[in-house]
Amino acid sequence: MRIYLPASLDQLEPASGPLTPRRAHAVTPALRAMFPDEDDEGLEYAAQLAAADDSLALLADAPEAPQLRCVVSVDVADAAVAVVSGDDDVPSAVELTRAVPQSDVICAHVDEPGAAADVTLAAAGDEAAGERLDERDLLWYDASELPDVPR
């Protein structure tokens, strides 16, 4: 199963070790039901955007981390994921139940450095900054490029 894991860039440093269990996003049956006319690519994009929103919460708790949204794409065994079914959760929400080695990362989607000010403001609750971020696309980086992501 492909999951979209909210992260911060400092969590992708080799010395940080494996990515720890946490809430993630995936193309779930609930997401498919919410967007029945959407193709797989559109559903994956919706799950990625939900993970980008969750990365803001991580950044709010880690002001020392580079203030850029980061979403890591990882393929994991179905048994490593539990579906989340709370009323407050978005339909793509899942729970990663096992640590993921950094070597399993396929790619990451990261804000360009110019978004840092809005990321910081949005992480602190500024709705206007959040709306500006909604208009920005995350940049794609292959796993081999992660050490070179601009911070």
Score class of each variant (00 low, 15 high):
V72I: 08
D89V: 07
A82P: 00
P91V: 04
S85A: 14
D87A: 15
V84L: 13
S73F: 09
V81G: 06
S85E: 15
T97S: 15
G86M: 09
Q67H: 03
D75T: 07
L96Y: 10
A93E: 12
S73I: 04
D87K: 04
C70K: 00
A77M: 10
A77C: 04
V71F: 13
A77D: 15
D75K: 04
S92P: 01
D87C: 05
D88T: 08
A77G: 13
A79K: 00
D88H: 04
L68K: 00
V71P: 02
S92F: 06
A99W: 06
V72L: 07
S92E: 03
S73A: 14
A80R: 00
A80K: 01
R69A: 05
V74D: 02
V74C: 12
T97E: 15
D75A: 12
A77H: 09
D89F: 08
D87Y: 10
V84E: 14
V94P: 05
V83M: 05
T97Q: 13
D89R: 03
C70P: 00
S73G: 13
S85Q: 12
D75H: 10
L68E: 02
E95A: 11
V74K: 03
A79R: 02
L68C: 05
C70W: 04
V83T: 01
S92K: 01
G86S: 13
V83D: 11
V71M: 11
T97N: 13
R98A: 15
R69K: 02
V83R: 11
V76F: 05
D75E: 14
R98Y: 14
E95I: 01
